[in-house]
Each structure stands twice: as C-alpha cells, then as structure tokens.
Amino acid sequence: MDQEILLKVEDLHAGIEGKEILRGINLTVRPGEVHAIMGPNGSGKSTFSGVLAGNPRYNVTGGSADFHGLDLLSLSPEDRSHEGLFLSFQYPVEIPGVSMVNFMRAAVNAKRKYFGEAPLSAGDFLKLMRQKRAVVELDNKLASRSVNEGFSGGEKKRNEIFQMAVLEPRLSILDETDSGLDIDALRIVASGVNKLKTDRNATIVITHYQRLLDYIRPDFVHILYKGRIVHSGGPELALELEEKGYDWIKEQVDNN
C-alpha cells in the first residue's frame, strides 16, 4: 500500500424499511483529503452519511466499510464516534434541559473512558470549550443554553462544527451543512472546517450546491445518483454540475 487509507467503502448496500436506497457504493478516503458528494434529491446522500455513522434507522444489506483497520459496520454508533467518526447533522437535534456544557462534558469524558483515560477536570474542560468556541465564533452564552434548543439555523450549524472542533475527529462527514445558512454563517462555518483540516484527518462534504465548495475546496467530487456513485472527478466537476445541472448525468445513467 503506497498510502494509508482512512475509509474504504466497498459495494455498500443499505435501505430503510425494506426499500433499498444505497445500491453498491464504493469510496476510498485517505488522510488529508476532502471529498464532496453531490447529487439530486433522493439519491441517497443522507442515507450514506447515516449508515456510516450507524443510525439504527437504516439496515445495511451488503458490502463492507473499513475504517482505519476496523470493521466500521460492526461497531456501535458511540464506538464509531470514539474511533474518530463525526457526523455534522443536516438537522441538529434539540435536547431540552441539557446544557451544552453538560452534553459536551459527557461526550468528551465518554471518549476518554473508551481510551482508558481519566475524566477531564472541570477547569481543563472549560479551557477546552473556550479554546474551541473561537473556531466558529460562538459566544459564551452558548455554554449554558440547552443543546440546540432555540438556536437559529446558523447557530445550530456552527454548534455542529464547534462539537467537531472539540472531538477532533479523524473523519468528518458534513451532511448538507450549508442548508439554511446565510452567506455570513456559511463563511464562518466553512472557515471553521478549514481551520480544523490537517493532513491527518479527512472530510466528506455532502451538498447540493457548488456554493459551499467555493469555501471548502474538495480534492474529489463524486456524484451520487440512484444509490450509486456514477461519476467522480476533481473540483471542476462541481462547476460543471452547477452550470449544466444533473440532467446530463441522469441521462447518461438511465440510458445505459
């Protein structure tokens, strides 16, 4: 092997309530790479991210996913998280009554426990929160607010990237992080993602639009259609899509 592989998905089939949505996905991600997955509505983009993160709603019916040497699909969702998989939700969930501080402390300490480390002291933890908050320009009040409750669309997405900053994942999947964002929020979120990028971690960006990719530059662009990656290319593919739409892809696939 010439280079380390972070994620290798082979012939992945999955569905929901007996209906097959993913019909053989292949994808290889190496550290330091940014992959964009684009595709029309209903092509399986969100299913793909949900399956990788282990959402019990979806059933995997075939194929495999190797995550730095581990059989990803056999791990529980929390172990996938501990091992460095992070999903930024398209619709972040509200948890009334649970403050962001308590939530993040539970998350951080669960991960430390998994690796046999002692829980973080209150002081160290608050320092960590302060440090990471700066990445997405979130203010102090956030800490005492309940998880996502009463957050604006922009705040929810910034909060996702904040959590990503705290957990320092090896692979981040951003599921339509750009939906519901105005230009300023988009810029803040994208710059947060870029700040967190290293040559050790990788990002999968799921999006409808080229717009986000102006800010987060992908190395590879994949087009998902009817549960398969039907076309892959460099960043120029996203521009081509923006110009021509998805119709030419649909035609190409449907005529074969």
Partner: peptide, 25 residues
C-alpha cells in the same frame, strides 16, 4: 430515537444519554 442517536454519534452511550435527558427534564 433521534435524540438518542444524536447523543450516540457524539460518543455518549444510550444509558448515559437517557440519564442526561431525564436529569435535564
């Protein structure tokens, strides 16, 4: 289910997540 999965994705096991949510409530 969505709340629990959200917690799980952040690394918080289900039992602990329920505890958090109930205490918050």
């Amino acid at each position: 289910e969505d709340q629990l999965f959200y917690c799980n994705q952040r690394g918080i096991p289900t039992e602990e997540a329920v505890g958090l949510i109930v205490n918050g409530y």
